[in-house]
Computed example of a mutant assay.
Amino acid sequence: MKKFGQQDGEAPRPGVAAEPGRPPPFRAPLRLAGTLAFAGFAVSLVAGLFHADTASANDHPATFAEYARSGIWTAVHLGQFAGMALLIAGLLVLLVVLQAPGGAMDWTARFGAVAAVSALALYAALQAVDGVALKHAVDAWAAAAEADKSARFAVAEGIRWLEWGMRSYQSFLLGAALVLAGAVVVSARRVSRPIGYLMALSGLAYLAQGWIIGTEGFTPANTIPTLAGIVLILAWSVWLLLSAWFGRRSSG
């Protein structure tokens, strides 16, 4: 059949080859995903370094006094939100790039995307509560007259408990998103499969954090899941970044 624009006797034109030096179509969005994910981790880590947390987090009088003295509290939480937004953006781009196989994996990718977007929305609300509302509450408590301190402290503690609940469910959603995205990575086989395994393990760490925070608050019991989540996200985000920029397309 003669194609539109093809003259009689003219051989069909071969497909247009990629220009020299330009990455193939799959590589460019994969690089974007890897860059966004790693940038999100890095921004969150740097912002967290400035977070006031020398006092035990569940020792509310000591913790609230420390928060009240912090002059960059709101800015730190804005930085943490920016980091989470970049990380979630990287996950979403990755889920699109992977082009999950049909059937169960296609739905897994969709549920992973929904969980990721929900986690980001809840994280925005969490940072508004922690970075803005709690800061104003502890400032009011610190500046209150002695007769008013008890009531002001009760308000701040109520906001703190609200933070526990929001942080718990945000961790559940983020953990679910990472587990589902990890399953898609392993199934799609368009990047190294260990990246998917590490991603899923980081999701399990966040699921554990969600349970501990919801039942006990910011206790030392949450230290190991928190550190595990940090190390695992660092591992898979760096691996994804290097694979996207310097590696070859992998099927396993």
Rank of each mutant, 00 (worst) to 15 (best):
A55F: 07
A124D: 01
W107R: 15
W107P: 01
A52C: 03
D106E: 15
F64Y: 03
H51K: 12
A142N: 14
F64V: 01
A125W: 02
A143C: 12
H60F: 12
T63P: 04
G103Q: 07
A55G: 08
A65M: 07
A125I: 04
G48D: 01
F81Y: 10
L120S: 04
E163K: 07
T63C: 08
G102C: 03
H77K: 10
H77F: 04
W161H: 15
A113R: 08
V155G: 11
L98D: 04
V138W: 01
G112N: 06
A140P: 12
P61A: 08
D130G: 06
A100Y: 02
R69N: 07
Q80H: 12
V76G: 04
D130A: 10
A75K: 11
R160G: 15
V155H: 14
G103M: 07
A89W: 00
H136M: 13
A121I: 02
A75E: 11
G71R: 10
E163R: 06
A121G: 15
P61H: 09
W161Y: 14
L134I: 04
A124I: 01
A62T: 13
V138S: 07
Q80V: 12
R110T: 07
E157L: 14
G112T: 08
V96C: 09
V46G: 08
G79T: 14
G112C: 10
I159E: 02
I159H: 03
M166I: 13
D53Q: 15
A85L: 11
S44F: 14
D139Y: 08
A140Q: 11
P101C: 02
W161C: 05
G71C: 06
V117H: 01
W107G: 09
E157H: 13
S150Q: 12
W161K: 13
V97Q: 06
A47D: 00
G103N: 09
R167I: 04
A109K: 05
Q127P: 04
G90Q: 02
V138C: 05
F81W: 12
A68C: 12
A55R: 10
A119C: 12
F64L: 03
A109R: 06
